[in-house]
């Protein structure tokens, strides 16, 4: 053979584009996009149809409006993260795809990082569409100057970091099952039900200040920083950022170790 070895970077690009194409070919991507457009777009169209007076009656300001719309972002970030990360590892070991892809001369770390970035781009894209709808509504119903740009922008960045944290967590969980479908369901149940129960129990016994470990708790800051101001959120922005970052980096490392160790 005469072909010269391909760099990890070039193989990363191949893994990334392959995975993005994979997501774009799935029903779950189009279903999530449809859900975002239906909820965000539906609310905006309804308000537009009712007129400016109706909007002014229900929302005191653009901040009030955008804060209300962004109340859905935490749930959205968790669902998209679970949907696009929940079968990331099990897809190779639960089907015979692993025999195909893992026998190629590509480092597993390159394959995994290509998949992770692809999942992040697709998930972020869906979250960004929702923010775009909120922004257009804020400008349309109020004015460009009325939009709280600083808190809105920081909220978006925190939403992206939270999405990365959820994805890393989902990537790790996806190694628990050999079936991609079961892996996906486990991830969604753990994120939406399991963590909520844990949060509820901890809050009941020790108060919300003990939820320093919870990504659901961190998610509260996403809309909170718009409605309550950057310095007035619970949890504080720094804590929400730290929790999300630790999830993103820590569970990505766990997923990496699990993916390296897994055998077909």
């Amino acid at each position: 053979m005469t072909h010269s070895p391909v760099s990890d970077t070039e193989q990363f690009e191949v893994a990334l584009t392959t995975q993005v194409r994979s997501y774009l070919s799935t029903y779950r991507f189009w279903a999530m996009l449809g859900l975002v457009l239906a909820i965000g777009g539906g609310i905006s169209l309804y308000l537009a149809a009712r007129g400016a007076g109706f909007v002014a009656h229900h929302f005191l300001s653009a901040t009030d409006y955008i804060g209300a719309i962004l109340g859905f972002v935490a749930f959205l970030a968790i669902v998209v993260g679970a949907f696009f990360g929940g079968d990331a590892i099990s897809t190779d070991f639960g089907t015979k795809t692993g025999y195909y892809i893992l026998a190629q001369p590509v480092k597993r770390s390159v394959l995994l990082s290509g998949r992770y970035v692809a999942a992040f781009l697709v998930s972020s894209g869906i979250v960004a569409v929702y923010y775009l709808i909120a922004m257009v509504g804020g400008i349309g119903f109020f004015s460009f100057g009325a939009v709280p740009w600083e808190s809105f922008g920081l909220s978006f960045l925190l939403a992206l970091l939270l999405t990365a944290g959820v994805l890393s967590f989902a990537f790790s969980l996806s190694s628990l099952s050999r079936s991609p479908a079961i892996g996906l369901v486990i991830t969604i149940i753990v994120l939406l039900v399991g963590l909520s129960i844990i949060d509820g129990v901890v809050t009941a016994f020790a108060g919300t200040s003990s939820l320093w470990f919870s990504i659901l708790y961190a998610a509260d800051a996403i809309s909170g920083m718009v409605t309550q101001g950057i310095s007035g959120t619970t949890p504080p922005v720094w804590q929400a950022t730290a929790i999300s970052a630790v999830y993103a980096v820590g569970f990505a490392a766990v997923a990496y170790v699990l993916y390296q160790r897994e055998e077909t």
Partner: peptide, 26 residues
């Protein structure tokens, strides 16, 4: 190995081109 299965959503052409790209075949 073990009757492997390429990505089911990929066409045969894309499957082969992906492998070529991974292996540095122009």
């Amino acid at each position: 190995i073990e009757s492997p299965e390429p990505y089911p959503w990929q066409t045969g052409q894309r499957t082969l081109e992906m492998v070529a790209a991974f292996r540095g075949v122009p």
